[in-house]
Simulated scan of single mutants.
Amino acid sequence: MHWSIGILMFLGTILAMELVAYAAHRWVMHGPGWFLHASHHRPRTGNWELNDLYAVIFAIPSIVLLFGGAQLGWWPGCIWIGAGIAAYGAIYFGFHDVIVHRRIATRYLPRSAYMKRIVQAHRLHHVTETRAGAVSFGFLWAPRPEALKAELRRRSHAGVRSARGTAA
């Protein structure tokens, strides 16, 4: 396979993973997988949360494709796709865990309109503490914060957590 085709497959996989992540977040994590994801909508008490198991689960296809393509003689495109999945995971980790949730100390402050929008959309996603009522399930693309706030109002703030220091 020519390397230029591989690069296109790699980049296409990164873009496709945003759709996969959206679907998994909306219909799995906020559905039957809530028993793991609920920990991510509560204040963390320590370095790890049950939701972190999703990183392991989502790494498996990447590992299998990379191993199969590199060691088992599978179609060479498997390597590029597996690398694209891994790259999306790394990008997601940087955005989500480092920039938004500050799980690793950093002095980075979002300055661009894009980064501010992504951070604000994810924070609006986290105003809910239940699996229902959440908005903005993607991560590299997010609706305008004004649209998300309007949607929360339209839903009568269903599932929105109480302000600190007030009774629920």
Rank of each mutant, 00 (worst) to 15 (best):
R161Y: 01
H101L: 05
G12C: 12
S39M: 08
T128I: 11
R102N: 05
G89A: 07
A90V: 14
A105L: 07
K116V: 06
L15N: 01
T13I: 09
G89W: 02
H96S: 07
A163S: 09
Y92W: 05
A105K: 14
L50G: 05
H126W: 12
W27S: 14
A150R: 13
T130K: 02
G6Q: 09
S39D: 09
E129C: 11
W34A: 03
R117M: 15
A134W: 00
A113H: 04
H125T: 03
Q120H: 08
T45G: 02
Y92P: 00
G82V: 07
L11H: 05
A90P: 02
Y114E: 01
M29R: 06
I104K: 04
L19D: 04
R111S: 13
G46W: 01
A87M: 14
G69Y: 02
L140Q: 08
G46A: 10
F10H: 15
A134I: 05
P145T: 07
S162I: 08
L152R: 11
Y108F: 15
L72E: 05
H122K: 05
F93R: 04
R107P: 08
H41Q: 06
E146F: 08
R102Y: 01
F137D: 01
A132R: 09
L36H: 10
A83L: 14
I7L: 15
G31W: 06
A168S: 13
R111M: 12
V127R: 08
A132H: 07
G94W: 04
H40R: 09
H40Q: 12
V64H: 00
R155K: 12
V20F: 15
E146G: 10
P43C: 09
A83K: 01
S39C: 03
G33C: 11
Y108P: 10
W74Y: 03
G46N: 06
V135A: 02
F137W: 04
I85A: 06
S162Q: 13
R44W: 07
T45W: 03
A132T: 05
E151N: 08
G138V: 00
M115V: 07
R154I: 09
F58P: 05
W34M: 04
W34Q: 09
S112W: 02
A147L: 08
A105F: 09
A134R: 03
K149Y: 06
A142Q: 10
Y54H: 12
T106P: 09
S156K: 11
A24H: 04
G94V: 12
H101S: 05
A132P: 00
I118G: 03
M9F: 07
K116H: 03
A55Q: 11
I7R: 01
L53I: 03
A21L: 02
P110G: 12
A158L: 15
L109D: 10
P76F: 01
R164A: 15
V127C: 07
